[in-house]
């Protein structure tokens, strides 16, 4: 048990190291001039050479990676090329927003999706199932930015009900927060609710087919009891494993939602940094999201272990 956990943590660390190397490689392969990105294009040739050396661009990439990794481990992510501020500070300003959006969206989509999934599985073949499954299929396939734009049109332009953009934390101004968050949160959670609903349904149906359910039926237990005691307990456990993947989806999707609703989060920051070749910021953004997602995978695996005692037997 302890061995498994340690093993799993080691695995996560290994993955983060691989990700960091791949990211460093990718970002530094970009055919953009880092010196110009940092100091502007109107510098003299001599200055250019000096700065080129100062950024260590004349050194081999492995050496630069080592240097960067050492600094990161000391908590120094470098200086942002566009903000001329330590990367840690820039990210610190933005990561809270994205983290808040992702966590709240996960907290909304899992219970709601599971509830709808249970309803469709229990009422399989009836109209509730048909309607909900169809809705889940339709919403699951819509790109978040299309939903966002259509909502923007309906609720901000046709009827001026909601503000078009911006973000305020709930502890700063709660009513404003709610008005600003409704549309982004809806767009961000829609896919999650639909996805979780579909997976809950198939997992529940899997459990309904098992022998122990037949036994429970032949014992004469009531359908309600069977669903509660046997189907749900077995059918809902695998859903936990989805949290990691969902979070990855949501973090990716928040890039679009932040973009449409002009929310100053990591997604917006990342698009900006790609467009303006802000190498340190790009590296930090990818690393932060990778860290968030890996930790989520780790936690869900351990949670799964805790919830399902059968796993530890393997």
């Amino acid at each position: 048990m302890t061995r498994y956990i340690l093993n799993r943590i080691g695995q996560t660390l290994l993955i983060i190291v691989i990700v960091s190397f791949l990211t460093f490689l990718l970002v530094n392969l970009m055919p953009k001039d880092q010196v110009y990105a940092l100091y502007g294009t109107d510098i003299s040739q001599e200055d250019y050479e000096i700065l080129y050396k100062r950024l260590n661009l004349d050194k081999p990439i492995l050496y630069r990676y080592g240097l960067w990794a050492r600094n990161v481990l000391r908590g120094d992510w470098g200086i942002s090329y566009q903000y001329h501020m330590p990367v840690g500070e820039v990210i610190g300003l933005k990561i809270g927003v994205t983290l808040y959006l992702s966590v709240v969206s996960t907290l909304i989509s899992f219970p709601l999706g599971m509830l709808l999934g249970i309803i469709t599985a229990v009422k399989r073949g009836k109209w509730q199932d048909t309607v909900l499954t169809l809705l889940a299929n339709l919403t699951n396939s819509l790109p978040a930015f299309v939903v966002a734009i259509v909502m923007l049109y309906l609720f901000c332009i046709k009827r001026k009900l909601l503000p078009t953009s911006g973000f305020t934390f709930p502890w700063d101004d709660f009513p404003k927060h709610i008005r600003q968050i409704i549309m982004p949160m809806f767009c961000l959670s829609l896919g999650g609710i639909a996805g979780v609903c579909r997976q809950t349904r198939s997992s529940m149906l899997e459990a309904i087919r098992q022998d122990y359910v037949r036994t429970a039926r032949s014992k004469g237990l009531q359908e309600n009891t069977i669903v509660k005691r046997h189907v749900m307990r077995n059918g809902l456990v695998p859903i936990i494993t989805l949290i990691g993947g969902r979070l990855a989806h949501i973090v990716g999707g928040s890039m679009f939602v932040e973009n449409v609703f002009a929310i100053p989060g990591m997604g917006t920051l990342m698009i900006q940094s790609v467009n303006s070749v802000d190498v340190p910021i790009m590296q930090a953004c990818v690393m932060m999201t990778a860290l968030m997602i890996s930790v989520a995978y780790l936690v869900t695996d351990l949670l799964y272990l805790a919830v399902d005692p059968r796993i530890s037997l393997k």
């Binding site: 983060i16 791949l22 970009m30 790609v274 953004c285």
Partner: peptide, 20 residues
């Protein structure tokens, strides 16, 4: 391991960098 590393980065971030 390569797959897991890939899964830990949102695909959109990788694609954006590769396209640039």
């Amino acid at each position: 391991r390569a797959c897991e590393a890939f899964n830990a980065i949102p695909q959109i971030a990788v694609s954006m960098t590769l396209i640039t």
